[in-house]
Amino acid sequence: MRVTFTVNGAPQEADDVWEGESLLYVLRERMGLPGSKNACEQGECGSCTVRLDGVPVCSCLVAAGQVQGREVVTVEGLAGEGGELSTVQQAFVDAGAVQCGFCTPGLLVAADELLERNPEPSDGDIREALSGNLCRCTGYEKILDAVRLAAARTEEAV
């Protein structure tokens, strides 16, 4: 089948998509956007998190056909048009929240969505919002630091 949808603001089309393919597979293998990760492919780890019409979803659990005509934002869509890092991306780099980095794209999408709806999250809010994203390297402390840093920098910039 053919699937057409918007990814990071640009229209995208994929042909010969098998009905069983996930949004994650189509993004990674057919659209050249491997930033969304495939750590479990069963909706448990959050590494494939993208926003579907604004809502964070595990793209491994979304059938590609369900996305027809809709809007998807992936980690590749977070940076500015000139390539400048978003506040959350920069904070992850600066805080040491990235080790192997495999969980990072999903965490960035989830953290970006959190800060959009809650610009001053408590630690409890951050933990709750990111509780669907597994990280095996960091022990999460630097990830908390990064989200706090991004929130503080966003507030300064306002």
Partner: peptide
């Protein structure tokens, strides 16, 4: 010094090529 990772930017933009990303 706590210098930053040289691969950090690639990892936060999704451009870092993991072994499952190869094509």
């Amino acid at each position: 010094e706590s210098t930053l990772r040289p691969d950090g930017i690639l990892k936060v933009t999704g451009e870092f090529a993991y072994s499952s990303d190869l094509w």
